[in-house]
């Protein structure tokens, strides 16, 4: 009985709708959970307790926040370009949600096993920059325009090291499919790609931080300089959508990092294999990586725009290129013979 329902859902339009709903559900939950984690982590680092009034230990705070934001009025500046202004949060949210479609959570548990999943990831996340520009331009405010310009420059510049660091993984795995990449890393943590590709792992991590606009690369927001950058004029649900997309993007970057360099759902040692429950490993690793994002955020100040560009173009890109040659040479020597 159940099986027929599942089979029925596997037919094309239904399959698409169900997976889309599942992804939306997942992303919104991830945004909520990460918001909470962020607030709690920051509070504990800063000798505070964080939200502790709504629900047990304040865990229902994101739900309360969403309720509050729903009840808020959506304000827009008088001179704003309304269509662009309202479309920007959506343009930011969709890429953050869509990439989860190709993410392998556990053996066999992937919504779409694309054979060009990495390319899909690169292509879709680039759309995020468009959302930032739309938000900054549509608001018609000096601060948000500056934020948008910064955001565009930063996100486009950091795509380059991001993609270059992906090349190492593609070379080692020999495939663009994320499932293949994860499968290629099986058999203990010494098979994971972060060891042979350590510089690329670091570059991917740093570029990922910059791509999701977190401290020390949060110049597009820069709340003490340009007050909030491209999202200074947003309020209510539109603002919540921008925030949700940022947190989902952060989770996505952590998950991508895990999938590409830290073995995805692979357990660190073979005897810890949990079979279908290997998504626990995936979740643990992602959570740990997300925590390091938050830990960095609450420890360091922000870079300046020129220093950010210097870091991207003068350090990350050359480091990636050099290591790419090293990896290619090593592969030639080890496999060619």
């Amino acid at each position: 009985m159940v099986w027929t329902v599942v089979e029925y859902l596997n037919y094309e339009p239904w399959r698409f709708l169900v997976s889309f709903a599942a992804v939306l559900f997942l992303v919104l939950n991830i945004a909520g959970i990460f918001t909470m984690a962020e607030r709690k982590a920051s509070a504990y680092i800063q000798l505070r307790y964080g939200p502790n009034r709504v629900g047990p230990r304040g865990l229902l705070q994101p739900a309360a926040d969403v309720l509050k934001l729903f009840s808020k009025e959506n304000l827009s500046p008088n001179r704003a370009d309304l269509w662009i202004f309202l479309a920007a949060p959506i343009a930011m949210f969709i890429p953050a949600a869509a990439v989860w479609l190709v993410m392998p959570f556990a053996p066999g548990a992937v919504i779409v096993d694309l054979n060009i999943a990495i390319l899909f990831f690169v292509a879709i996340t680039s759309i995020g920059a468009l959302g930032v520009i739309m938000a900054g331009y549509g608001s018609r405010s000096a601060f948000s325009l500056l934020g948008a310009l910064r955001g565009a420059a930063q996100m486009i510049s950091y795509e380059v090291p991001l993609i270059l660091s992906l090349l190492g993984v593609i070379m080692l795995a020999g495939s663009l499919s994320l499932v293949d990449v994860v499968n290629a890393q099986s058999g203990g943590f010494w098979h994971w790609y972060f060891l042979p590709l350590l510089p690329m792992f670091v570059v991917f991590y740093v570029a990922g931080l910059a791509e999701v606009k977190r401290v020390p690369f949060d110049l597009p927001e820069g709340e003490s300089e340009i007050v909030g950058g491209y999202m200074v004029e947003y309020s209510g649900m539109t603002w919540a959508m921008i925030q949700a997309s940022e947190f989902a993007m952060m989770g996505l970057m952590a998950a991508m990092n895990v999938t590409l360099f830290l073995g995805g759902w692979q357990p660190p040692l073979d005897f810890l294999d949990l079979g279908a429950f290997n998504w626990i490993w995936f979740g643990l690793k992602t959570a740990l990586l997300t925590f390091t994002f938050q830990w960095i955020r609450w420890s360091v100040p922000r870079l300046r725009m020129d220093q950010l560009m210097d870091l991207g173009w003068k350090i990350l890109v050359p480091a990636c290129l050099v290591w790419l040659f090293v990896v290619a040479g090593a592969m030639l020597v080890l496999q060619g013979s």
Binding site: Q46, L47, Y49, S299
Partner: peptide
Amino acid sequence: VTLGHLFGKKIT
């Protein structure tokens, strides 16, 4: 330093 404070005593 911040990691030390993460597990330290809270003052709130």
